[in-house]
Structures are given as structure tokens and as C-alpha cells.
């Protein structure tokens, strides 16, 4: 469990990092918190000519408000996100989901951008950006571009970012008043990647749901949106809502994977119930 040889690059600015990455093309990998990449390297499941370490790029670690959104720099530690007052007030489900990532030691080191760029389909952050329709800022040789969350993932642990691009920041839209959110997951142990999980957001006006978002994680090659279930929710009265039916609708047609921890059949049953629980909690928050 020792990595194959690689060159180590440690730029101190984003511009420098993009330049260094450009020199290597697809022979380099960006290193953020290292919580997933380092074990992969140690097991020699992947190898790169160079690692471009972003840990000295201070300009990528921040949380700020910007035009109705909360923008989080890619190198912001998960522990910082979890405790940040702005995040907790404006995007509470992001803080709530953060608590489910690993253990505190992992969150002290792991970064928001690293988790989102790594794109583990059973991880919490990709499901949050998917549910909230977040926007990702990507830096490359020709400047920066904005990428919608829906266009970010291509497959398991695969993004649509080019080899010479760096995920620089994530912008989380702040939902309006009378909104509620919840994240629920089933994991074998405290801190594990989810066997199945869901992030739910709703906005309620005059007893009816005006906006709904449901994402599923651990349920497919990428984080999924339960669009059909969402469309049935929008316009529905909160009173007497059949939560179980919404849960069933959310997993209809989903074909989750089987592995040593659980079968796809189990994941489907559990995800359906987690959606119902999360929706119940989100509705309570929205109508409180």
C-alpha cells in the first residue's frame, strides 16, 4: 500500500495551479483533502505523473454571500462548512449533510470541493448540490466557467470537468422563506458512505407545495433527481399528503447497485422510506 512514484506540485494561487495542471494534462490529479485520493493512490488503483496540491491555495478557502447565493470555496474544510454561521442560516441542509460525512477527523481534513469533484455517488455533498441546483465555478486555461449541478456528473466518480480544469467554488442558491430541508441516509455504521440516502427541499405557500427537490444518493452511478415525484409534489396540498406514495414514486424506475453491504432491492425499499421521512421533516420545517 505505497503509491507509485509521482511528482508533487504545490502551487499557492489558483492561476498557478491551473498553469501547473495544464502542463501535465491528463497525467496529473488535483489533491484537495486527500481523504479518497490518497487511499486510491496507496492501493495503486490509480496513478498519476503528478499531484497538484491545492492545500496552499488560500484563495480557495472561504464562505461568502453573493447575490442571493452562498458561495463556498473548493478548499473550505468540511468542518468549517459544518460550523459556518452563514451556511447554517442560509443553506442549513448543507451543514446538516456535512455532519454525516465520515468522522470529525475526516471532516477536519476533507474539503467541500474535493468531495464534489471526486463525485462518489454514495457521498452526501454531490447529492446536496444536485438537490439544490447549485452552480459550480470551474477554472481552466481560458478562464472560469459556470456549470450547473445537473451537468456536473458523468458516471461514478467522473465529472464533466476537463483534465486541465479545477473546481474552484460552489454556489448554493438560497431558497426563499417557508422552505424546509432534510437529509436522511442509511449507513452501516456512523460515518460510512450511505447505503442509500436522500436530500429533500420544499417550499410551501398557502398550504400547498410550490417548490420541491428530491435527490437520491447511493442509488445509481451518479446522484439522482426524483423528477417525477417532485412534479407530483408541486401544487399538492401539504395536508393529507401520502408520504409513503411519494417515497415509492421517488424510487420508481431506479435501479440501484448491489454490493457486499446491501442488495439493490434493499436500497430501493430503504430509499423509499427515507424519502418519506425526509419529506415529513422538510414539510415540518417549512410550515413551522
Amino acid at each position: 500500500m505505497k503509491p507509485a512514484p509521482f511528482t508533487y506540485e504545490a502551487p499557492t494561487t489558483l492561476g498557478e495551479a491551473v498553469d501547473v495542471l495544464g502542463r501535465y494534462g491528463d497525467e496529473a490529479k488535483v489533491l484537495a483533502g486527500g481523504q479518497s485520493l490518497v487511499p486510491v493512490l496507496a492501493l495503486r488503483l490509480a496513478r498519476f505523473e503528478a499531484l497538484v496540491d491545492l492545500n496552499r491555495v488560500d484563495e480557495l478557502a472561504y464562505v461568502r454571500e453573493d447575490d442571493g447565493a452562498v458561495v463556498v470555496g473548493a478548499m473550505t474544510r468540511q468542518a468549517t462548512v459544518e460550523a459556518d454561521p452563514l451556511v447554517r442560516r442560509a443553506v442549513p441542509v448543507l451543514a446538516e449533510a456535512t455532519r454525516l460525512i465520515g468522522h470529525f477527523q475526516i471532516r477536519n481534513r476533507g474539503t467541500l470541493g474535493g468531495s464534489i469533484a471526486h463525485g462518489d455517488p454514495a457521498a452526501e455533498y454531490p447529492a446536496v448540490v444536485t438537490a439544490l441546483d447549485a452552480t459550480v465555478t470551474v477554472a481552466g486555461p481560458s478562464g472560469t466557467r459556470q456549470l450547473a449541478a445537473a451537468d456536473l456528473y458523468d458516471g461514478p466518480m467522473t465529472t464533466t470537468l476537463a483534465d486541465d480544469e479545477i473546481l474552484a467554488a460552489v454556489s448554493f442558491p438560497v431558497w426563499g422563506p417557508r422552505s424546509g430541508f432534510a437529509v436522511r441516509e442509511m449507513a452501516r455504521r456512523e460515518g460510512d458512505f450511505a447505503t442509500a440516502g436522500t436530500v429533500v427541499g420544499v417550499t410551501v405557500a398557502d398550504g400547498r407545495i410550490t417548490r420541491a427537490a428530491i435527490s437520491l444518493f447511493g442509488m445509481g452511478p451518479v446522484p439522482l433527481r426524483a423528477r417525477d415525484a417532485e412534479s407530483h409534489l408541486v401544487g399538492a396540498a401539504t395536508a393529507g399528503l401520502d408520504l409513503t406514495a411519494v417515497g415509492a414514486a421517488a424510487v420508481a424506475g431506479v435501479d440501484p447497485p448491489s454490493d457486499v453491504h446491501a442488495s439493490g432491492r434493499y436500497r430501493t425499499r430503504v430509499a423509499s422510506r427515507l424519502v418519506a421521512r425526509a419529506l415529513e421533516s422538510a414539510l415540518q420545517e417549512a410550515t413551522a
Binding site: P39, H103, R189, E190, G191, D192, F193, D259, V260, H261
Partner: peptide, 9 residues
């Protein structure tokens, strides 16, 4: 990741 040991939690 796959051989799960119980933790303090």
C-alpha cells in the same frame, strides 16, 4: 471500506 469494524460510535 468494505470490512466494517465497529467504532466507538
Amino acid at each position: 471500506l468494505d470490512y466494517l469494524l465497529p467504532t466507538a460510535a
